[in-house]
Simulated scan of single mutants.
Amino acid sequence: MSDLPTDLKYASSHEWVRDNGDGTVTVGISDFAQEQLGDVVFVELPEVGREVEAGEEFSVVESVKAASDIYAPVGGEVIEANEQLDDSPELINESPFGDGWICKIRMSDAAELAKLMDAEAYAKAVSEG
């Protein structure tokens, strides 16, 4: 597995969260998750304005192998979806921690970030399978 960005938080369901420092977070799936999926061919983006709860399914990533539900790692309002993924879903494979982000959420409870894993804990969880 490639090096995990240490500035991110991770959910056990393989989503990552970048704290944007303004009450919003950017969400995507980890490099491990995209490797498991294989070539991504479609992303069902969450609807802007949708309220989500932590742990709620809010997106779907489809690959040549399977479709996988994506879960909100924190609760709040979806304020932006990465529309680049409509035309270029492969960005999730090419840049899972960069251009392949899925959405941005305005958090309803910033304390939920503390419940997520840091890079070291996530790497350990993945290696233990």
Rank of each mutant, 00 (worst) to 15 (best):
Y122A: 05
K65P: 05
S127Y: 15
D22M: 05
K115V: 03
V27L: 02
F97C: 07
S88V: 10
S12I: 15
P73T: 02
Y71A: 04
S88Q: 14
W16D: 04
P5L: 10
Y10V: 02
E53T: 11
E90Q: 11
G21R: 02
T6M: 12
A110R: 13
A72Y: 01
A121K: 14
A67E: 05
V61P: 02
M107W: 00
V40W: 08
L113F: 08
E15Y: 04
S2H: 14
Y71L: 09
F42R: 07
S88R: 12
V40K: 06
V43E: 09
A54I: 08
L116E: 05
E112W: 03
S2T: 10
P5G: 09
G98S: 10
E56G: 00
A125S: 10
T24C: 00
D99I: 15
G49I: 09
V64M: 05
E120F: 10
G23M: 08
V52L: 03
D3I: 15
V40H: 04
A123M: 13
V17S: 10
M1F: 12
L37T: 02
L85G: 05
S12P: 07
E35K: 12
F42G: 00
D69P: 10
K104G: 01
V52M: 04
D19V: 06
C103S: 11
P73C: 12
L85M: 03
N82H: 02
L91N: 14
W101A: 00
S59N: 07
G28C: 14
T26N: 13
E15T: 11
E77C: 07
I79G: 01
V27F: 00
E112S: 01
S59I: 11
A121L: 08
V25N: 00
V52D: 07
D69F: 13
D7F: 12
I29V: 13
E128T: 11
E90R: 08
A54H: 04
W101C: 03
C103H: 00
E53P: 01
T6K: 11
N82T: 00
T6I: 15
E120D: 15
K124S: 14
E80I: 07
E15Q: 15
S95I: 02
G38N: 06
S2P: 11
A114Q: 08
P73I: 08
R50W: 04
K9T: 08
W101N: 01
L8S: 01
D109A: 10
F58W: 08
